[in-house]
């Protein structure tokens, strides 16, 4: 049995948390530049330019790109041949988050209870952790720092099966329209369709871990992603909601079998930060 220490997991989580805060991913930068090129001279173009400059300023000064440095979401797939030794997995993850938010001068944005007191935990823990056991002898750790300006504008609808493709389309467009400037467009749209009410949300979040430009392997879904992206950008909301062609940079859909009686749809909105990364421990 392969052994991986809790310490190694902690370090990986810490490094991952720090690697996503001070610069856009190279792919994201490329996509933003493309869209900037497509905007007419004016406010929309200027805003995209400022966002790209912000990424430079952030990395040069080691300031996070955005002050909302997010809640950490970790998706782990653990090979069943792996044993985690010398410590607890959950504690290792939270310790990684704690150390990253301390040394990285990142904002601690987590409160200990959603209703009562809402006391800041002061170290940005706990993280949201999903684990999955799979074949193999490695651990894949995906880490995202999710901002809540966009998270707050996400939505769920238990559609009727008869609403079909159009139901999904309408709900995605409606949710993006409602989000408007609040979610800091340009946006990344994660859509989860199928499963149960809760699982559709898990799928929508999973979709947000995709690298920009990556398509759904199922051609029907890949086409729907492309069509939705065009339709969203035709809404004219634009960067920061002030008008323009760039409302979203990507639409990612994840799907799963569901019940004969339903078609759950969740739209999880992300902003252009799209802070996420992946580490493989062998």
């Amino acid at each position: 049995m392969k052994k991986i220490t809790a310490e190694k997991i902690k370090e990986a989580v810490k490094e991952a948390c720090l690697s996503i805060q001070y610069r856009y991913s190279p792919k994201m930068e490329e996509v933003l530049k493309d869209y900037m090129g497509k905007e007419e001279p004016g406010l929309a173009k200027n805003i995209l330019k400022i966002l790209l400059e912000n990424s430079d300023t952030a990395s040069e000064n080691r300031l996070p790109m955005c002050q909302d440095t997010g809640m950490i979401v970790v998706r782990m797939t653990i090979g069943q041949e792996v044993q985690i030794v010398d410590g607890s997995l959950r504690e290792a993850i939270n310790q990684g988050v704690r150390e990253a938010y301390d040394v990285g001068y990142l904002r601690k944005s987590i409160v200990d209870d959603p209703i009562f007191d809402r006391k800041n935990t002061k170290d940005n823990t706990p993280a949201i952790v999903y684990t999955d056991i799979v074949d193999g002898d490695e651990i894949v750790i995906e880490v995202a720092a999710k901002g809540f300006g966009s998270e707050n504008m996400s939505a769920l609808k238990m559609c009727k099966p008869s609403e079909g493709l159009n139901g999904v389309r309408q709900f995605v467009l409606e949710t993006v329209k409602k989000a408007g400037p609040n979610a800091c467009p340009p946006l990344i749209i994660g859509v989860g369709v199928g499963g149960t009410m809760d699982y559709a949300a898990v799928l929508a979040k999973k979709a947000l871990f995709r690298e920009i430009g990556e398509e759904n392997p199922d051609e029907r879904y890949a086409n729907l992603e492309k069509e939705l992206l065009i339709e969203i950008n035709e809404l004219g909301i634009g960067p920061q909601g002030l008008g323009g062609k760039t409302t979203a940079l990507g639409v990612f859909i994840e799907h799963y079998p569901t019940h004969i009686a339903s078609m759950p749809v969740v739209v999880n909105i992300n902003c252009h930060m799209a802070r996420h990364t992946k580490v493989v421990l062998k």
Partner: peptide
């Protein structure tokens, strides 16, 4: 007025 959401580093400077 609205400031640019996501330009935190630049605005902080």
């Amino acid at each position: 007025l609205v400031a640019i959401g996501g330009a935190g580093a630049m605005l902080g400077k």
